[in-house]
Design a protein around this nucleic acid. Structure first.
Lengths: 223, 223
DNA sequence: GAAATATTCAAGTGTTCTATTGATTACTGG
DNA sequence: CCAGTAATCAATAGAACACTTGAATATTTC
């Protein structure tokens, strides 16, 4: 059947719309953010995004229909991952656009961080310099599997859940920098709070591994 | 009122979702594409996107609520424009992601171009070279106002509507390259068809001005 | 093969979105 | 001030969507 001009355009923009529709839900965006950290099972995503399993599964199917994620069944578990690196980069572009266009985001973040007394930040370029000089200890407070799928070179993996029991490993004479999934992940905020209460000098780095990577800096992967 | 971690995340992703929701409609994406060509009135957009005025106005308000477009009233007309260059670049990133993830797009395009006998294409880098050598005449077949808000250096403005009456201006001994808004705009396809029927040697360039610009090439603006 | 578990499916409900229609507002020019 | 035009608003019907619940499926383990 022949395409009229209008039908052709409608067909094309409908395809673009498949991507757009996949991005239209806050929960799906949160899940994409989580999947930027590495592959995850449905159950893990469900827990980390605070929603029911069935709902998580349905959202994942929407993302899969837009070909933004792929899944693979391993025994009892189904593991989902972003379809390729471009998807994570695109998610970051959306995040950057939102940050630049919507001042509400900065306002919400400032209010939250103030309340958590976590306004002090280290920038990634400054961190790189001070790591090089051996002045700081870098802590990756995400779950172990995320550390293993990619982390900042030199970082020590201390998942937030283990932090209190592993304080003895950390230096008291050096500043500690903690990072997690990115600017809107609160794991490092919690970590800073714990560390300060115990008398450590600790600050947060906003960037996650994907931001670090997007800035052209190297990333280590566990074998 | 204090933010819990979950409330903070929900508030942040809800903001990201504002951008996502704005992208969830094929018609809105088409309008963003059109607005990448330059500012337009509601009436113009309505005509170019083939939809009623009221519907166009409503979609524009959704885009404005997401701060992707801005409007300005001049007398009887309201002119809408993209809020900044990043919005156009982001739209192009979405388009590129869609093209890379959804094979349907290539299939639909191929079928349409075959039927219109318009498969032959010139790449932008090849065009730049041949323009420099004076081997080709470059035709911008978009409406005049779009030409004026930005065009490829050296291009002649011959809106499709005027093409048949201005054939005398065009060379018969040289290849003619026509371009329009981008790969999914059909103005240049129509132009090629007219030109060939009249015995000219004509091929299409897929890229529009914003693609040309995104590739780091210079753009001329009429004073 | 039965129990346990991860995931998906199916159905239902309330909400949000799209497109249409007709009315209304805002502005210009006579 | 009136007529004409661009744009928006308001109300609506129908479609699509998000989330919940409970059942079904697939796989592993005992």
């Amino acid at each position: 059947m022949p395409y009229s001009n209008r039908k052709f355009k409608d067909a094309i923009y409908e395809q673009f719309g498949r991507i757009g529709k996949a991005l239209a839900s806050p929960k799906r965006l949160e899940m994409m953010d989580l999947l930027c950290q590495g592959p995850k099972t449905v159950e893990t995503l469900s827990r980390q995004a605070d929603q029911t399993l069935a709902n998580t599964s349905q959202h994942l199917q929407v993302l899969r229909a837009a070909r933004l994620v792929e899944s693979e069944k391993n025994g009892l578990y189904v593991t989902y991952r972003l379809a390729d690196d471009n998807v994570c980069r695109f998610y970051q572009a959306l995040r950057a656009l939102a940050e630049s266009r919507l001042f509400e985001i900065a306002a919400i973040t400032r209010e939250f961080m103030e309340q958590r007394d976590s306004l002090e930040l280290v920038k990634s370029d400054e961190l790189a310099l001070r790591m090089h000089r051996g002045e700081v200890t870098l802590l990756d407070v995400r779950p172990t599997d995320e550390f293993e799928s990619g982390h900042i070179p030199g970082a020590i993996s201390v998942p937030l859940a283990e932090l209190e029991s592993r304080l003895a490993e950390l230096p008291r004479d050096q500043q500690i920098v903690a990072y997690c999934r990115g600017p809107y992940c609160v794991l490092s905020v919690e970590a800073i709070s714990v560390l300060r209460k115990k008398g450590f000098r600790a600050v947060r780095m906003e960037d996650g591994v994907s931001d670090w990577k997007a800035a052209g800096l190297p990333v280590d992967i566990a074998e």
